[in-house]
Amino acid sequence: MPLVSVVLGLVLGAVLIAVQGHSVTSAYGALVLGGAGDADALLRTLQKATPLVFGGLAVAFAFKAGLFNIGGQGQLLVGAAFAAGVGFGLEGLPLVVHLPLALLVGAAAGAAWGAIAGVLKATSGAHEVIVTIMLNFVAGNLTDWLAANPWQDRSGSNIIARTPLVQPSAEIPTWGWLPAGFVLAALVAFACWFVLERTTYGFEVRSVGANRHAAHYAGISVGWIMASTMAVAGLLAGLGGAIESLGVDGRFEAGVNVGLGFEGITIALLARTNPIAVIPAGLLVGLMEAGAAKMQFESGVAPEIIDVIQALILLFVAAPLIVRWLLRLRDRPDAPDRRLTLGAGWGR
């Protein structure tokens, strides 16, 4: 079904491009070339895909426990800012110490940010959607302030709210067209799958998500699982932010990462919350974003069409009935497909 949604989104996107009088083949051709045509294009795609994969995992993992994590944005921001802080602030450390430390601090900051929502949910029932949305604003303002005040780059005549460049010992390497950050993202995606499917902790997380009452009966501490799951989700988003600072931007700059965390919701939906499917979902969206500039340059299509196509894909994933209607598929009650219900987090 997600594949069908992608195709439908691209077909409708093609219609929109044609209606504007542009050539569909040259637009989509440029899009693919811009995203995967050469080593540079591939590098761009993989760099774009990395925070998308982490953001997608942050949503997908929480969803397994029945929690809707809208806070990927805030968790990513604190991860990015604190990783950059460690990255430029500490000097004289070897790479094998400095880089892992910076990543760890970014991940921990994200985890703490996620845990706030989880602990509040577990102890007081405060709804995680509301709390994480509010925490996004807090994180945005906090990191803006950090970048504009204590951690601002004072060199030369810089007046931009950004940190200095991180030390070379905290930079994430890139091997040709392959950024190490993406490798890490893919490994973490597999690790998430392993934890969820093969460990007792994952069994507990999925139990809480599938039937909270039965989980309680089974002796699982529902509160602990909700709190810890949100912390893990925050950790994943925070790691994505850290890699963004240490591997792509080289620093943290206020306003640069805005929106990245929200795209995780799209990715998680497209992957139907399967951690491994998050990788291709992130790659697909990453490729479209990486190729958009070349598409505009070569065929004149406004890059915003990418946002429209993404929105269409998301719509089709979230509303399978529309797809059935479009394709005139008969709804077979004998074999109902497993619908993804994102409402599970509400009203509990």
Partner: peptide
Amino acid sequence: KHGLIGSYSVADNSVL
């Protein structure tokens, strides 16, 4: 409500 997780397999429920 309490005894089973409907979406879980028979195997997982046998050790719930």
